[in-house]
Nucleic acid binder design. Structure first.
Length: 553
RNA sequence: GCGCCCAUAGCUCAGCUGGAUAGAGCGCAUGCCUCCGGAGCAUGAGGUCGCAGGUUCGAAUCCUGCUGGGCGUACCA
């Protein structure tokens, strides 16, 4: 339908104003159709008359009048146009068009909303990637909810997505972790507890140490100090990564690839990366270290890739990892980073350019902090000090549906206050309940209809749906595919949440105004069809969010 | 100092990549179930969109400069 309107408008300009060259040059005119905020302005609104009036030397309203006449003829009653305000052209779809949209929702079912907007673009989406030096914390839960939903949105809108988790299972922090566990082990053996400098104080290591068996540890202790620390570290990492995997799974956040940083070290990829940079003459030596000229690509200063002690700096792993990803043929790599890593954005961009992928190949999304709030008090967290609410605690406390939704209500850039008290309440105050309540309510109505023998009637006469509340609901449902595509393109899953709430609002209003199951079988059947379509859209949307659509609550 | 992010109703936040009278939830006030789920619906009060300029037919949205807050600014990862 949109295509018909757009082509009608374009035809007009080509027939009457071809010499103005509106569609050429550096600022070609694009014909936009928006959903007006105010429904009394029709179904679709267009601003071309205002946008082009200056170039054509015509007053916007006069131009709009001509366009309206032209379009009304072209569209043959499938939609009607009228001029409004300063020169908007408002289009109203014929009822048949609206009903056809409803029929199409019912026909497509679980695939309704799917599109090929992404054109099969191959995207690597990396998210969470938290250091496996302790249990996953709340920021990871936010990243998980955000990333997994974005992955599903991208997939649904026609992209080929690989969800990836990068494990920092190498480097100094891992050794520190091993040393901390070793200290905890010694504690279980009656020795005084001496946690190393900058070590990890969390009780999870105490518990882990207590679950170690003596015969397991003996061979480790027989090794040199350094190798012993390494052995404890390996155990700790293995254990913690296992926990993270289980939690991500329980949080409905599947990953296609768990990428080990250590594997880059073990397979010589770091040396390859360094050789690559050297070959491209992007490195130099200074103060005994090897530097990478990231400032050539917009970073504020150069960075060390090989430390003066000969050990690779983390950035080299970034280069090796980016080379690996690029080599796997992705058209785009999205990095979802935590707020503590935002200084990395510039140098990651530099890496992308240096390896010849181009700076648009690598996209950084920065998630902001989550502050847990309870009774107006901020709940403090620090991984090293061992005070934190883990992701597991959070999920046990409020449930997966509530936790996921809470994170999906906000844009990535906004700091998020997570109110534990509110989330725990399981009431209408909780953000997800409104939409879920709608699905449960619909399920209730459908059960009722089934008891009355109405369920089987598939050939509903949709033209019986003509009340304002009915049409408004259908038109909102019709926006779903477009919303999905836009939400994926903007990397803003929160729009999906907003949309589902809008659908729920319109459904509740419709429900309140109209008796669905009544004496009038034809009318009932039509309204039941609308209920099914609404449930389908809510269900598809909630599914993308990784949230359940309950039959009863 | 420099860099990134944020600033919208009493509170928490949306605002669809420049559109018409800036919205929702919570809280507050008032109505609506003999009827399919009242965990719902409707109405009302509440705004200098941080401040000042600029671009535009048109700005909460884009640009510049301020103010205030968060984070970062390692040969840590």
């Amino acid at each position: 339908m949109k295509d018909l309107i757009t082509s009608s408008i374009r035809d007009y300009f080509e027939a009457r104003h071809a010499d103005a060259g509106l569609f050429e040059g550096e600022n070609p005119l694009s014909i936009q159709l928006d959903n007006p905020r105010d429904r009394s302005h029709g179904d679709l609104a267009c601003n071309v008359a205002m946008a082009s009036s200056k170039k054509l030397g015509m007053p916007p309203r006069a131009l709009a009048e001509e366009l309206v006449t032209w379009c009304n003829e072209k569209m043959e009653g499938r939609a009607t146009a009228e001029v409004a305000g300063p020169g908007f052209i408002n289009f109203r779809l014929a009822a048949d068009e609206v009903h056809a949209a409803l029929a199409s929702i019912l026909k497509l079912g679980a695939d309704y909303g799917r599109s090929d907007a992404g054109g099969g673009e191959k995207i690597n989406l990396e998210f969470v990637s938290a250091n496996p030096t302790g249990p996953a914390v709340v920021v990871s839960a936010r990243a998980a909810a955000f990333g997994s939903t974005l992955a599903r949105l991208l997939e649904f809108s026609g992209h080929a997505v690989t969800s990836e988790y990068f494990l920092n299972d190498a480097g100094g922090q891992v050794r520190t972790l091993g040393a901390s566990l070793l200290a905890r082990w010694k504690e279980t053996q009656g020795e005084p507890l001496v946690i190393p400098e900058n070590g990890y104080h969390g009780l999870y290591l105490k518990e882990m140490a207590e679950s170690l068996r003596a015969e397991q540890v003996e061979p480790w202790l027989a090794l040199s100090d350094s190798e012993a620390v390494e052995a404890f570290a390996r155990h700790a990492i293995h254990n913690l990564v296992g926990q993270v995997r289980v939690q991500m799974d329980a949080f409905r956040t599947p990953f296609d690839v768990w990428f080990s940083e250590k594997s880059l070290h073990d397979t010589g990829k770091l040396e390859d990366a360094l050789a690559y940079l050297e070959e491209k003459q992007l490195t130099y030596e200074k103060d005994g270290a090897v530097w990478f000229k990231t400032s050539d690509y917009g970073d504020e200063k150069d960075r060390v890739v090989l430390k003066s002690d000969g050990v690779a700096a983390y950035l080299l792993a970034d280069v090796a990892y980016a080379l690996d990803k690029f080599g796997r043929g992705f058209d785009k790599a999205i990095y979802v980073l935590g707020p503590d890593h935002h200084s990395h954005a510039a140098r990651l961009k530099a890496v992308a350019e240096a390896i010849g992928a181009g700076k648009d190949w690598l996209e950084v999304i920065l998630l902001q902090w989550v502050t847990l709030v309870e009774n107006g008090e901020t709940v403090a967290m620090s991984k090293r000090a061992g005070e934190f609410v883990t992701m597991e605690d959070l999920v046990n406390d409020v449930g997966v549906d509530v936790a996921r939704t809470y994170f999906l209500t906000r844009r990535a850039e906004s700091h998020l206050d997570f109110d534990l008290g509110l989330a725990r309440e399981q009431s209408s105050k909780s953000p997800i309940f409104y939409a879920q309540y709608a699905t449960a309510r619909i399920a209730g109505v459908l059960r009722k209809a089934e008891e009355g023998g109405l369920a089987a009637a598939a050939d509903a006469d949709l033209s019986l749906l003509s009340a304002p509340e009915e049409l408004a609901l259908i038109r909102e449902l019709e926006r779903f595919p477009e919303l999905i595509a836009a939400s994926a393109k903007a990397r803003e899953p929160n729009r999906l949440f907003q949309f589902l709430n809008e659908v729920a609002t319109l459904f509740h209003r419709f429900y309140h105004e109209h008796q669905i199951v009544s004496e009038d079988a034809a009318q009932s059947t039509a309204r039941l069809a609308l209920c099914r379509a609404t449930r389908q859209v809510l269900g598809n949307g909630l599914d993308l969010m990784g949230v359940s659509a309950p039959e009863r609550m």
